Each structure stands twice: as structure tokens, then as C-alpha cells.
Simulated scan of single mutants.
Amino acid sequence: MKKRILGIMAILLAGIALAGCSSSASAEKKTINVGILQVVQHGSLDASRSGFKSELTKEIKAKHPKWNIKYNYQNAQGDQSNLSTMSQQIIQKKPALILGIGTPAAQGLGKKTKTTPIITTAVTDLKGAGLVKSNKKPDTNVTGTSDMGPVDKQLQLLKSMTKNTKPIGIMYNSSEENSLLQVQTAKKWATKNNIKLKIVAVTSTNDVQSALSTLKNKVSGLYIPTDNLMASSMKIVGKSTQKDNLPVVTGSIEMAKDGGTATYGINYNDLGKQAGKMAAKVILDKQKPQNMPVETSNVLRLYVNKAQAKSIGIDPSSIKQP
């Protein structure tokens, strides 16, 4: 009888052990679904997406090597009508978290869900876009990394490269809230420093060349803030300003690489990585976007497009951090 009881106990213990192993194995093997909605395709936004994915994957794999991260990526390709449909498609897959790249994408997602955590990147003013109630305490299901750059420092950099007293030109997309905010900041800086501005607005890439023509011989340099439309048009800007020997300072490094002369600003890959770290806190540490302050870039860099600078007669080594 005693042997029989011991045998039964051994079987039960073995079963418990197997159940524990099975439970542990199932816990190790897990798929995390992450949605990504991007408003348009260009270098800056693509870099932010790449940075986000690499950092979030790294953070998750460091703690759970056997977890699988599945990214559902949708790109509206600049068509606003696609945002609502794509937002709904992403949410229907019930992701653990969604990344919204660019203000319209983040807004599209925010309208479709008030519960699924949303991390944004490449959005300049989350509060102004109606995504959060406060940058310090969002109090919504949205938070993220703002791409607001040091507009005053960028204008100082441009001023150091100009060779005459003509006004500084600014070109931006008047339909982007992000751009409007940066232009307002530029105006305040210009007033404070007694600098004249000549501002032109565009609403499509078809307007860019004609807008550049209106600035020809009328400005000493050109400033272009972080702006999705203008980021998509930087190659046009680069060719035109090269012919006119016009220095161009942009809001981001990626834009400067595509046709600007220089910038002191953010790198969108870095900004995306920062958003990836925030997403990891939501997924791994169960933090709530509601209580996570909006962040700005941890890293600002001086970038000089040496080929572009030389082509307009500027020695790249003479361009210094403002």
C-alpha cells in the first residue's frame, strides 16, 4: 500500500512538473503584434520607422529572446483618405500597441481607438494636434516623441552662412500644423533679432519650383522646417538653390542630406529609437501612455552636406555649431 501511495505521488509530481514546463514554454513563445501607420514615404519618416523597429525589437529580445514581434505596416502615401481605412484595418488586428508616424497618421489612429496604446513619432506638437491633454501628462491613450527642433539655433546657423543683408526666406506647407508652429517660432526669433523674413507657402509638390522662383535674388538664404511635403521635395530644392548659390538650412538631418546645406537638429532614426524605448515600457513594463510625458529628441547634431556646401561656394569646415 505504501509503495502504491508513493507511486501515485510520484506520478502527480511528474505531472505538475510537466505542466510547469509546458506553461513556462508557452510563456517564452509569444507573438507581439505591433501596428504602424505612416502618413507618407520619405527619408525622415522612413528613418524614424526603422529606428523604432530596431530599438523595440532589441528591447523585447533582451528580456524575452523567444518572443516574436510582428509588425503590421501601412503607408497612406500622402493620401488623407487612406488614413481612416488603414487605421481601422490596423486596429481590427488587435495589436498590443500602434505607432503613428506623422501628425495625420497619429490623428487618424486617435479617432479610431481610445484604448489601444498609441506611440507617435515625427509629430511636432501633440497637444496642438489634439492627441494629448498635456505634454507632461497626456491623459489619453497617446504619447510619443516630438520632432520639434531648435528653430532659433537653425536660423542662427543659416544667418552665419549668408553673405548679404537680404531677408531670410522660409518655405513651408501651410496645411501642416507642425509647419505653422515652426514658422510662428521663426517669426518671433526674427522680430527679436531684427531680421527680415520673406515667407512663401506651398500646398503640393507641384508648387515648390514656382515658389522657389519667387524667392530668386530676393533672399540671402532659405530655411525649411520639418515638413512632410517639403521633405518629399528636397531634391527639387537642392537643384534649384545650387544654381542660385543659396544656402539652405533644414529642420532635420535627413532633409539636409537630400538637398540642404546644413542643419543643427534631430536625426529621425534617433527619434524613432527613442519612441521604440517608450513602446517597450508600455509592452514590457505595462506603463500607460496616459502617464508618460511626451519626449523631445535626446540628441541634436550639426550636419553639413559637404557636396552641397562646396557647390554654392561655402567651405564646409567654416560651418560651425550655433
Rank of each mutant, 00 (worst) to 15 (best):
S220T: 01
S220L: 13
S220I: 04
S220V: 02
G221M: 13
G221T: 04
G221V: 01
L222Y: 00
Y223S: 02
I224G: 06
I224Y: 03
I224S: 03
P225K: 06
T226F: 15
D227T: 00
D227A: 07
D227P: 09
N228L: 10
N228D: 10
M230Q: 05
S232N: 06
S232V: 04
M234A: 02
M234W: 02
M234E: 04
M234S: 01
K235T: 08
K235H: 07
I236T: 15
I236H: 08
I236E: 08
V237C: 14
G238Q: 09
G238K: 07
G238D: 07
G238W: 02
K239V: 12
K239Y: 05
K239H: 07
S240R: 12
S240D: 07
T241N: 11
T241P: 13
Q242F: 04
Q242W: 07
K243E: 14
K243I: 07
D244R: 11
N245Y: 10
N245Q: 14
L246Y: 04
P247K: 04
V248W: 03
V248T: 09
V248P: 15
V248E: 09
V248R: 06
V248H: 08
V249L: 12
V249Q: 08
V249C: 12
T250E: 11
T250R: 12
T250G: 11
G251R: 09
S252N: 13
S252M: 04
